[in-house]
Computed example of a mutant assay.
Amino acid sequence: MRKIEISTAAIIYKDVSELSTEDKMLMRKAVEAREKAYAPYSKFSVGAALLLENNEIVLGNNQENAAYPSGMCAERVAIWRAGSEFPSVKILKLAITASSSIHKVDKPAGPCGACRQALSEYEVKQKQHFPILFMGEVGEIVKTESLSSLLPFSFDSSYL
């Protein structure tokens, strides 16, 4: 038997004012995407903004459906859109923000498990990690240097 220890690292910013100019801009784009989300059932809106190597910014937001859970998360909308429109362009960074029409989301809302798996696929595909920033609608922002900080022992194509 062998025991290993898994550790992760993240930077926590107190609010948007502490972010770099580029990170602020990307988070603003994520907020714009969040404001267009279609979330009539959960009342929980999420926006995502991907910065690509060609300086394009690809947005996504959650899209719900009455046949719950047939909807789609913002992160997967954005990453699949980037993969469809810019298939060979690397992702440099992802910003995510969430809000609710029921209560104030004042803590960082990270990607769900399915989104983490989809994001992992793109890090493996492009052979390059990318930072992920996430927040609620106000308050602290978490920044990780890669998806592996959020999903250790991920499953990828090397197992197939």
Rank of each mutant, 00 (worst) to 15 (best):
A114I: 11
V89N: 00
D106T: 11
H129I: 11
E32R: 02
G47N: 08
R34S: 03
S101Y: 08
A67D: 10
K107Q: 11
V124P: 00
A82Y: 03
Y122I: 06
M72D: 06
L92I: 10
I79K: 00
V58G: 00
A48L: 05
Y38C: 08
A82E: 04
V46S: 13
E56Y: 05
A95I: 12
L119K: 04
L94G: 04
Y122T: 01
A37D: 04
G83A: 15
K93F: 05
E75K: 02
S100Q: 06
A30R: 01
R76W: 05
E32F: 06
V31R: 10
W80R: 09
A48N: 01
N61R: 04
A33I: 03
S88Y: 06
K104Y: 03
S100V: 07
M27P: 10
K125P: 00
F130S: 13
F44Y: 09
D23L: 09
R34Y: 05
E22H: 06
V105G: 09
E22S: 12
A114M: 13
S84G: 07
I102L: 15
Q63K: 14
H103N: 14
S45H: 10
A67W: 12
A48W: 02
S100H: 07
R76T: 15
I102S: 14
E22K: 07
V46P: 02
M25W: 03
S45R: 12
L59G: 07
K36I: 01
S84N: 13
L51M: 10
Y41R: 10
S88W: 00
L94R: 02
A66V: 12
K93A: 12
S120L: 13
R81P: 00
S70E: 14
K29Q: 13
E35H: 07
V124Y: 05
G71M: 03
L92H: 09
S101H: 09
L26I: 05
F130D: 04
Q63H: 12
K36M: 10
V31D: 01
I96C: 09
E32Y: 01
I91G: 00
S88G: 05
E22N: 08
A118E: 13
K24L: 09
H103V: 15
A82F: 06
S84L: 14
G110F: 07
Q126N: 04
L51N: 04
T97C: 14
I96K: 08
V124R: 03
L52T: 01
A109P: 00
C115L: 06
Y122R: 09
E75H: 07
L26V: 02
K107F: 15
